[in-house]
Amino acid sequence: SLTYMTGTLVKTGHALAAAVRGGDPWAFRPYMALWAGLVGGALLGAVVYGRLGLDALWPAAAVAMTLALGVRFSRAA
């Protein structure tokens, strides 16, 4: 595994190769879900950027801030 996403791609290939050799035929699904999230986020970001330009960063920043504050205040002290 070289980096996070290329490592996931390598693990997907390993799981698919193992399935061909008789291993678990569904072991690749978690890795493919990560890739689907990456591709989906890239596509959604491209569409929103095409419509809003750099103003597309504000909703993303608001979601990130909301999630960060949610995690910060949900932790036990």
Rank of each mutant, 00 (worst) to 15 (best):
S1I: 11
S1F: 09
L2D: 15
T3L: 06
M5S: 14
T6G: 12
G7E: 12
T8G: 05
T8E: 03
T8W: 08
L9P: 08
L9V: 12
K11V: 03
T12S: 13
G13K: 03
H14T: 14
A15Y: 00
A17P: 02
A17E: 08
A18M: 04
A18E: 13
A19T: 05
V20E: 09
R21Y: 01
R21W: 00
G22S: 06
G23A: 03
G23F: 05
G23N: 08
D24S: 08
D24K: 01
P25R: 03
P25Y: 02
W26F: 11
W26A: 10
W26S: 05
F28P: 04
R29H: 11
R29V: 15
R29D: 06
P30V: 01
Y31V: 00
Y31W: 09
M32E: 07
M32G: 01
A33P: 02
L34F: 04
L34W: 02
L34T: 10
W35P: 01
W35Y: 10
A36P: 04
A36R: 05
G37M: 12
G37D: 06
G37A: 10
L38F: 15
V39I: 14
G40C: 05
G40F: 00
G41L: 07
L43A: 14
L44F: 11
A46W: 15
A46G: 14
V48T: 08
V48A: 12
Y49D: 14
G50I: 01
R51I: 14
R51A: 14
L52C: 08
G53H: 13
L54V: 11
L54H: 02
D55S: 15
A56F: 00
L57K: 02
L57Y: 10
A62T: 11
V63Y: 04
V63W: 01
A64F: 02
A64M: 06
M65C: 15
A68S: 13
L69N: 07
L69S: 10
L69D: 03
R72Q: 15
S74A: 15
S74T: 13
S74K: 04
S74M: 07
A77F: 03
A77T: 15
